[in-house]
């Protein structure tokens, strides 16, 4: 499980560099998200543009990551590839998370 973090004025961008968030790494993903965000503040944009596949365990891990951020910080999702997007829409999680087609659009929404 590899994540990289980039600081922004209003929060941070966490980029997932593994091509799959699945049952095999869901728990590690949740832990890695905690490690990357615990010392930060503000909004978190999760850049999923490098993720080709997610299953229900991976989806659950992203929900868990949002919960552990707490009510004061939003978790927005950017760059969903077709299969990842399908999973979020099918489960209606697109009503829970804000989905942005690209990282640029997520960051632009931040400025506005």
């Amino acid at each position: 499980m590899t994540l990289t973090t980039t600081a922004m004025d209003s929060g941070q961008i966490v980029t997932v560099t593994s091509p799959r968030i699945d049952a095999a790494i869901a728990i590690q993903f949740k832990e890695a998200m905690r490690e990357h965000t615990v010392d930060g503040s503000g909004r978190v944009i999760l850049d999923l543009s490098g993720v080709e596949f997610i299953d229900s365990s991976g989806l659950g891990a992203i929900v868990a990551a949002m919960k552990q951020l707490g009510a004061g910080r939003r978790l927005d999702l950017a760059g969903l590839t077709p299969t990842v997007d399908k999973v979020f829409r099918l489960t209606r999680m697109d009503s829970v998370f804000k989905l942005f087609p690209s990282l640029d659009e997520a960051m632009a929404a931040d400025a506005g």
Binding site: S56, L59, G60, A61, V63, A64, M66, V87, L90, T91
Partner: peptide, 11 residues
Amino acid sequence: DLPEGGFGWFM
């Protein structure tokens, strides 16, 4: 209270 599982059979 959001679910972290139980999406599988629905999908």
